[in-house]
Amino acid sequence: MKYVLLFVETEEFARELEAMDEAAREAAFEAVGRWFAEHAAVITHHAHLRPAETATTMRLTGGDALVTDGPFVEGKEVVSGYAEIEVADLDEALAVARTWPACPIIEIRPLT
């Protein structure tokens, strides 16, 4: 089955990342790189999103297109990237997500 792991950042996580010195940040990025390398066999596709400030949302209602600045949910948690994986079942998807070394929330969505 195919799943998308949606990586979700929190304000606290962003602050921690901000507060890191060069070496710590580099180590954090390396950990993420290792994770992608370790799971390369099941990852079919992945991308990192630019920060939420760069997001634009369009709402299509009654023929109108309302364009606003920012992500579609106002909140402290924003999607920062995703990885599409192909594994046997949800337990295997959870096992892959379990080792994710960066942001603290992951939504796991099956694909049709």
């Binding site: 089955m1 799943y3 046997a88 079942d89 949800l90 337990d91 998807a93 096992a95 099956p110």
Partner: peptide, 13 residues
């Protein structure tokens, strides 16, 4: 739809 398996979990879990 979410692929919740029908099996005994892995030892670690």
């Amino acid at each position: 739809e979410a692929g919740i398996p029908y099996r005994v979990p892995a030892d670690a879990d």
